[in-house]
Every structure is written in C-alpha cells, then in structure tokens.
Design a protein around this nucleic acid. Structure first.
Length: 208
DNA sequence: AACACGATGGACT
DNA sequence: GTCCATCGTGTTA
C-alpha cells in the first residue's frame, strides 16, 4: 500500500482558469507536505486588481508578486503580524487572482499536525481557519512563490470532490466596497464540520 | 520616516 | 459577546 493511493499532482493548466472556478474545484483536493495530508474543505476566491477585498487592489508589489504570475504558485503572507495565510494563485499571468485556503480536514499526519498546532484536538478547532491550516503545514514566508504543481515541498494533489458546494460572502473583509463585500466568493464542502463559519453559506444554485 | 491597520486566533467576561 | 498580541506592508508626507 501507499504509493498507488497517492493521488497525482494537479497539473498547471488546472490553475489557469477563472479564479472562482478554480476555487470551487479546489474543494476536496489534497494539500500535501511530507507526512501531513489535508483535504481542502473551505476556500475564498480573490479575483484580482478590480476586487476591493483583494491584496491585488494595490497592484503588483514585492509581497503579492506570486499572485500576478500564472496560476499554481503559493502566495503566503503574514496576517496581524502573527498568522501565516496560504493562497493558491489562479488564472493567467497579470491577473492578480488567488484563492485563500480557509479550512481543511486532516487525512494523515496527525501527530505532526498536533505538534505544529500545539493542541491535541480532533475537531474543527484543529484545522478550521486559514492561520491554522498554514500552521499545520509548517508554512512561513519562505513558501511565498512556491510552485504547488511540482513534486516535493508543498504539493496540491487529487482528492475526492464534495457531493455539493455551499457558497456565501467572504469573511473578514468589511473594508471592501460593494458589491465585493457581498459577492458569494466563499465556497465550502456541503455537510462538512471543517468550516470556519457556517453562517452565510447556502447551496449553490445548480440550475442551468 | 512615521503611521495605521489587517483575508486571525486564542483567552476571557 | 470583548480584548488584544505583533509586525510587515502600503500609504502618506
């Protein structure tokens, strides 16, 4: 056992699509670093320079440079001086689009996850939150710009897609202008307990 | 060069 | 619900 259970890496074209589409498609995929494997359960799409909630609203800077490359690079930044946040770049270069990984469920590597998080919990308190996900993966600024479609280091691999998708407004962006503040750009796996805030989420309209 | 503040999380009332 | 740690970043001057 082992190797044949390892889903293949996502290839680069996966990321070179509209940001919200990639965001929905990231649900259920696996983030892998060494023994730690996490299944993505909640994400937020940040659309680019025209999105007043996005770091891309300032244009290209030293910090957010990975957002502006072609999709598939990690954008990792420090929030509140304390918490590292993991984003996945999307779309073609020059767009500034990226997806924040907000919550995951553990698949393997619990001992290391517990050690990095500093708690022994088994519920959502362990991995529901963008800072928690990055901490569990042992990420810091040195991962900014890391290619997620390359084996070794931090990887994005196939997983199992959710039965259905919930969507709702993004969290913690009160500074954004309308309509960005209300845009339904947060996505989560239906039925999961591994989600930061259930309030505001509802099933996507699948008609059409 | 100074300043304001944040895509949060944990402790606490 | 409230408070606040802690520092890199972008803004303004």
């Amino acid at each position: 056992m082992g190797l044949h259970l390892e889903g293949p890496l996502l290839e680069r074209p996966f990321f070179i699509r509209p940001c919200a589409e990639v965001a929905r498609d990231l649900l259920g995929r696996h983030l892998v670093r060494g023994s730690v494997r996490l299944r993505i359960t909640e994400v937020e799409a940040y659309l680019g320079s025209q999105d007043s909630a996005s770091h891309a609203r300032f244009g290209r800077t030293a910090r957010n440079a990975p957002m502006w490359e072609a999709g598939g690079l990690a954008y990792v930044y420090l929030c509140y001086g304390i918490h590292w946040m993991l984003n996945v770049g999307a779309e073609e270069d020059g767009r500034g689009a990226a997806i924040l990984i907000r919550a995951c469920e553990p698949v393997s590597g619990l001992p290391l996850i517990h050690r990095r998080r500093g708690i022994d919990a088994s519920g959502p308190v362990l991995l529901a939150g963008p800072g928690k996900v990055a901490q569990a993966l042992g990420l810091d600024g040195s991962f900014n710009g890391h290619a997620l479609f390359v084996a070794g280091g931090l990887e994005l691999r196939e997983g199992d897609a959710p039965a259905d998708i919930l969507s709702g407004p993004r969290v913690g962006i009160d500074y954004a202008a309308e309509p960005d503040r209300e845009a339904r750009l947060r996505f989560a796996c239906v039925g999961t307990k591994w989600v930061t805030v259930l309030k505001g989420l509802s099933p996507e309209d699948r008609s059409g």
